[in-house]
Amino acid sequence: MNTHRVTTPGPLRVLSWHLVAYKRFWKANVLSGLVQPLLYMLGLGVGVGALVDRNTGATEVLGGASYVAFVAPGLLVTTAMALGAGESMWPVMGGLKWSRGYHAIAATALTPRDIVLGHGVWMTVRTGLASSSVAAALALFPDTRSWGLIPSVLIAVWVGLAFAMPVMAFSIKAELDGAFAAIQRFVVIPLFLFGGAFYPLSQLPAAIAWLARVAPLWHGVVMARQCTTGTVQWGAAALHLGYIGLWVAAGTTLAAVRMRKRLST
């Protein structure tokens, strides 16, 4: 291998491993990624939306948007959250304990850091694909069709990473996969319900609303909503993105440290 050429960065080599495995699933995934938001939109739009929009005070609380227009960005961002978190649980434990693929990689010229960054790149691709599916579905409805869906996909990916990387750090240390059900139950699902995706946080008791603001989800939902409803406030946007970025950075750093420890005993 003495030919001179540009070397592929380690994380991208790890990405190609994920892609080989995903080759078998991506079509089915993209399809279900389209169908699921369609069902949500129909269910929420026809049912809840009709109810909410009939209430004259509601549109004011929702910032002037119809209910489906209000919910759509929430749908987009929560999808990325759930995927980023879920794909950083069992697959990460599998790489360490079951198929032990991470051990195989660590025996090559790659490093534990490449594995972690590679997972991040992979999660970017996965959440990017999934969010694009959702955005495509949302573009089918006049109420939710907007150019703002495009930046919203990027925001969703950013939120996906803000969950994927800290969850990865958690999964590297987890001994039993039962811990994952707990994360789903006590973090992902509560955030889904109380994280500002389906109604404004102003509807919640202050303490709970404050908790929801700690997690990266709400920041992403608010930003995506500003994009789709054309009400972007640039200063606040920078703060939101930066705050989400803190979660990404902290999760990635912690995951890299833990991965190195775990793989080099």
Partner: peptide, 11 residues
């Protein structure tokens, strides 16, 4: 085999 080669950045 193929993916392992990619880990070593073999074309």
């Amino acid at each position: 085999l193929h993916i392992y080669g990619r880990f070593f950045d073999i074309p």
